[in-house]
Design a protein around this nucleic acid. Structure first.
Length: 274
DNA sequence: CAGAATACCTGCGGGC
DNA sequence: TGCCCGCAGGTATTCT
């Protein structure tokens, strides 16, 4: 489900209710997500407070004096804050209950998500250590991308979805960004021209910022922490529009598969040549 | 080493 | 109505 805008929306939604709040109880109903939930570490957190919430790529970090909870929403994960007495449904795997009677609930039908623990600096955790740059910082720029891609033969779309190069960009937003930049998604990364690469950087930043402003995209079932959908899906130009006319040139949008992910593009607006 | 395929799960919509 | 198929916002691991 979530790419950077959805994770950022989630963070902003839960932050006011749980930051600085003290943990009263942790309920783990289903510990087998992508990796087992470290139950013992979480139980030790009772009486400790969440000092700070952070995002790194698609990961959310809940920082305490004992260590850090590392959360990933996978494909179908969702976090919401509820008021305390509330019954749990089938896929409500974890509740963290706070002294202010707020309850942070982690729901994830497909269980591709993860809830992990580290008592060291989270940036040193194996999953975070090798992550690429944040797309909304100055570190994500043309020269960085050029260096990363200059001998990559894989499709530009696959390269930009590689979290070791740039974080937070998933199938929806890379599809949109490539359309905006006029780049055919199958072009080998090393063959994308400097001008196109510059346009792609601009497109990615612009689309992610706009999506965050709209609260992310609700394609099927994404709801933010308040249970409301994101409205950026209404502004998607190509994702989910296979076989429909291109909104720019009216050509029929094409559907292909790249790296096992469905990919929509306009063969007129996104030519294979520069 | 790079890149491609596979694996992990549940739910939903469409076709029959 | 119900069954089967394909597809879904991700990514670590295993393969070639």
């Amino acid at each position: 489900m979530p790419e950077l805008p959805e994770v950022e929306t989630t963070l902003r939604g839960i932050q006011p209710f749980i930051e600085k709040q003290t943990i009263q109880q942790v309920i783990i109903r289903r510990p087998n997500l992508r990796w087992p939930i470290p139950k013992a570490n979480l139980q030790q957190l009772i009486g400790y407070r969440i000092n700070q919430l952070q995002r790194r790529g698609k990961y959310l970090l809940l920082c305490t004096d004992l260590g850090t909870i590392i959360l990933h929403l996978g494909m179908s994960g969702r976090l919401q804050v509820l008021n305390k007495p509330v019954k749990a449904e089938k896929h409500d795997h974890v509740d963290i209950i706070f002294n202010n009677d707020c309850l942070l609930r982690f729901t994830d039908p497909r269980r591709f998500g993860a809830l992990l623990w580290t008592d060291e600096s989270p940036q040193c955790h194996p999953l975070l250590k090798k992550l690429g740059v944040e797309p909304l910082t100055r570190h994500f720029n043309y020269s960085y991308l050029q260096t990363q891609l200059n001998n990559k033969k894989i499709a530009i779309k696959a390269a930009l979805m590689d979290q070791h190069i740039v974080v937070g960009v998933g199938n929806i937003y890379i599809t949109e960004a490539l359309f905006m930049a006029g780049i055919h998604p199958t072009i080998p990364a090393k063959n994308v021209s400097p001008m196109q690469l510059k346009q792609l950087v601009v497109a990615i930043k612009s689309i992610l910022r706009r999506a965050i402003k709209k609260g992310g995209s609700s394609i099927k079932d994404f709801l933010n922490s308040l249970g409301k959908p994101g409205y950026f899906s209404q502004e998607l130009q190509v994702y989910g529009r296979a076989d429909l006319p291109c909104l720019r040139c009216q050509s029929t949008l094409q559907l292909i598969t790249i790296a096992q992910r469905s990919t929509v593009y306009c063969s007129h607006c996104q030519p294979t040549t520069c």
